[in-house]
Design a protein around this nucleic acid. Structure first.
Lengths: 146, 146
DNA sequence: TGATAATACTTGACATATCAACTATTGACA
DNA sequence: TGTCAATAGTTGATATGTCAAGTATTATCA
């Protein structure tokens, strides 16, 4: 192995990082007026998809797009805003079940359209087939290499 | 516009975010034993490329892979570790010129190989031509869409 | 030339992230 | 059944990120 990765490797890696930064910044800007961070929004979406039962804390952490060690306090903030409710499980008292509140659902409903528009806008330069190719190539990348 | 983006759009967007998170976590893990964050490492690389003159603070910020409002304190930390030196410009006393120190260069030299190996490992599942395709598709994405 | 605006940071206040203990509870097994 | 390990989450200390406001300096232009 030489001490430098080849140009196409560098370009791919840099491209991933830059594109993600763009997405995150736009997402943060969109959510900021609603008092949500990108991660908080992702938790809410996960919990909307997990109705009506909800999920326990660490399962939410597993499903996050970005690995999130601070999941407890992240959900603390959502609970403080009344967007999530937590109840300690009776079957296994170590677990805490989290559910999205009606207020959380209403907030998400308001966000669906602008978030979808943002997603579309960011990859608008790519035709559908190219978006599919991109997704397929990235899927290979995050199949956690050894 | 419907209230939901199509599956290929979602897959592309999610793929970007997940792949970037993987890269960032691996990078952070690699750099941690050396006492550097990913962003600090990026500043050092930018300054290595800007020898011998160095760069003023905001120019470094512009060249960062990720947009970084806290550039001043980021460089504060590098200066505290003696990896960067700062001097106020004489031509324009508002500007501060930053240069990498020999110690900073030595640290980078130790990191070049493992970082290159990491980059290669992360996209190892893709043949060269696919890495090029991936880079080309991502380049379209971060051509800052309106 | 003097007032105003623009630039290049810097700083303070605050939010969030990260790591390493720590507690409570459950499972596994001698 | 009692002990030890594993699980699920919480908490404290600390580092880092973010935004808005502040300072110093330079450019613009009446």
């Amino acid at each position: 192995m030489t001490a430098d990765s080849p140009p196409h490797t560098k370009a791919a890696v840099l491209g991933i990082l830059r594109a993600a930064d763009l997405l995150r910044r736009r997402g943060a800007a969109l959510l900021e007026p609603y008092g949500l961070t990108v991660q908080q929004f992702n938790v809410l979406r996960i919990l909307r998809g997990a109705r009506p039962d909800g999920l326990c804390t660490l399962t939410i952490a597993e499903r996050m797009v970005e690995q999130t060690p601070g999941i407890t306090r992240l959900i603390d903030r959502l609970e403080a805003k009344q967007l999530v409710r937590r109840v300690r499980s009776e079957e296994d008292r170590r677990q805490v079940w989290c559910r999205i509140t009606p207020e959380g659902l209403r907030l998400l409903a308001r966000l669906d359209q602008p978030v979808a528009d943002l997603d579309r806008a960011v990859v608008a330069g790519l035709a559908r087939a190219d978006q599919e190719r991109l997704a397929a190539l990235l899927a290979v990348v995050h199949r956690e290499p050894a």
